[in-house]
Simulated assay, not measured.
Amino acid sequence: MNILGHGIDIVEIKDIKQLIERSGNHFENRCFTATESSIAGSDSHRIQYLAGRFAAKEAVLKAMGTGWSQGISWTDIEIQRLPTGKPSVVLYSRCQEIAAELGITIWFLSISHTQSYAVASAIAVGKPPLS
């Protein structure tokens, strides 16, 4: 197994808060799956939680080296939480296809936040395809 990519992203919590306040459900429905929205809850940490997931999705795409190209949608990446609290990456549709083409089979993901910032780091591991 080899590290095939690494991505990191940082977002300002206030920017995510403003997007949600301006667009309401539109922003959330476009960027987050139903599972991600439901897990975020409704307490004071909801915005921090969503900002962390937003940063994590950006970090995953950077690790894949694609950015938001090739027909990828925000909801093609879902950031789940294991019972241990550890975040995990689940890919769907075009993201899943690209990851398979790149040989990515394992993701290591870390998310952290303060009141002002959320940061995420994603490491893609697998066996690169034969050239």
Rank of each mutant, 00 (worst) to 15 (best):
P83E: 12
Q70V: 00
E78M: 11
F27L: 13
S38P: 00
T84F: 05
L50H: 09
H45Q: 15
H45L: 11
A63E: 00
Q80P: 06
H45K: 15
W74F: 15
L109N: 08
L91M: 11
S121G: 14
S73G: 10
R22P: 07
E28C: 14
S44R: 06
M64Y: 02
M1H: 09
L50S: 05
E28H: 05
F108C: 03
K62T: 04
C95L: 04
Q70T: 04
A40W: 10
A120S: 11
I72T: 01
I47R: 03
D76M: 04
A118S: 06
L19P: 14
K14D: 13
G24Y: 11
E21V: 13
Q96D: 12
I47P: 09
V90Y: 06
I111E: 01
G24V: 09
D9Q: 06
T105F: 03
A124D: 01
N29C: 07
T114W: 07
A118D: 01
I13T: 07
I123K: 00
L130D: 10
H6L: 15
Y117W: 03
L4C: 03
M64F: 07
Y92K: 11
L109S: 02
H6I: 11
A99M: 12
E78Y: 12
S112E: 09
V60H: 01
G41S: 04
W68D: 02
T114D: 07
D76C: 04
E12T: 14
W74P: 04
W68T: 01
A56S: 15
E21N: 13
F32N: 01
L130C: 12
D15Q: 15
F108T: 12
M64A: 00
T114S: 15
K14M: 03
S73I: 05
W107G: 09
P87F: 08
V89C: 04
Y92P: 07
R30K: 14
A100D: 10
L91D: 00
S69L: 09
I3P: 01
I16K: 11
E101N: 14
K17M: 12
Y92S: 02
A34K: 05
G85I: 11
T66M: 05
K17D: 12
A56F: 14
I104H: 12
Y92N: 03
R46V: 03
A100K: 13
W107Y: 09
V11S: 07
